[in-house]
């Protein structure tokens, strides 16, 4: 059992590419909220790109190693320390048996990923090692937990992701969205205000959803359709895409992320494009956010760019 958890951090979970294919029965994909950072961390330690790693939100854990290992930390600027000595982000480095890994305060971003050569060999549940705490599929780390590591090589220490392939973390971000499917419930002024407002992320932001405040959106006057609730933002229940933005009551938009419920009765006025879900994932409370409308074609082009960027990570070390 090579890794022992001394302190769990705020909410540290095991995450991989996610559990795809069960959303129709209410089980969300889960997986790393910032998939690019997960992939980068895995490449640095020679793992398959979607091996399971630790997702640490806002505050890192304190871990010790009982065997030598190669590790890497990516994502948020949550700088690692080994036995109190600083180690770099976006680079793989060795740890020896007995070494203690902990972290400084987060300086930018929200979620860091800790990959270990060999991957963290948690139980596979419905095809994934990802934690979905709300659904009882795994739970956040607790003090005293022992994390098994899969077989892996320890020869990749010293790998570096170049600056050009590291995301820029900012407290002011733009998040691209495709409008719909229920934006017709917004009055023209409400629609304009959604796109013109600089929204602020509230502390109500977790793996399920990210809640923003900034302005109140005007909705059209209508009689709710049969089967919908009485709130003007209610719709007849519909499936919620990951990244969809619902605005209960026309106030405080919520961006659903990878642990979201699969459906419900709030209008979704827009959906964050897949390529920008990582930007949401790295938003900490107070992040000032503009939602920028793009067409479906532009969203598809952005997805191609995102995949090419991920491929460049893979190409670095082959």
């Amino acid at each position: 059992m090579p890794i022992e958890v001394h302190k769990p951090g705020l909410s540290t979970t095991l995450q991989d590419a996610g559990r795809n294919g069960y959303y129709d029965v209410g089980i969300p994909p889960s997986g790393a909220l910032d998939q690019y950072a997960l992939t980068a961390a895995n490449h640095l330690v020679g793992n398959p790109p979607h091996a399971a790693a630790l997702e640490c939100v806002y505050m890192g854990p304190e871990l010790s190693f009982t065997e030598p290992a190669t590790i890497a930390v990516t994502g948020a600027e949550l700088s690692p320390r080994v036995n109190g000595e600083a180690r770099p982000l976006w680079e793989s480095f060795p740890v020896a048996a007995g070494d203690v890994l902990d972290f400084e305060f987060v300086k930018a971003g929200a979620r860091a990923y800790v990959a270990v050569a060999g991957g963290i060999d948690g139980p596979v549940m419905l095809g994934s090692r990802s934690t979905y705490g709300l659904g009882g599929l795994g739970r956040p780390l607790a003090a005293g937990d022992l994390l098994p590591i899969g077989p892996g090589s320890s020869t990749t220490a010293g790998r570096v992701i170049p600056e050009s392939l590291r995301p820029v973390l900012s407290k002011e971000v733009e998040v691209r969205v495709v409008m719909g499917l229920y934006d017709h419930v917004l009055a023209p002024q409400g629609r304009a205000d959604f796109l013109d407002t600089t929204w602020t992320l509230t502390p109500v932001a977790d793996r399920v959803g990210f809640r923003y405040k900034g302005s109140e959106l005007e909705l059209i006057k209508r009689t709710p359709p049969f089967g919908a609730g009485q709130d003007p933002s209610n719709i007849v229940d519909a499936p919620y895409p990951i990244g969809s933005i619902q605005v209960p009551g026309g106030i405080e938009p919520i961006v659903l992320h990878r642990d979201a419920v699969s459906g419900g009765g709030y209008m979704m006025i827009a959906t964050v494009i897949s390529g920008d879900l990582d930007v949401v994932a790295q938003s900490a409370p107070n992040t000032r956010t503009r939602f920028v409308e793009v067409s479906l074609d532009e969203a598809m082009a952005a997805r191609r760019d995102y995949r090419q960027r991920s491929q460049r990570l893979a190409d670095l070390f082959t």
Partner: peptide, 9 residues
């Protein structure tokens, strides 16, 4: 004394 995490104080 600094806050170790972001949030509401």
């Amino acid at each position: 004394v600094v806050s170790p995490i972001p949030g509401v104080f």
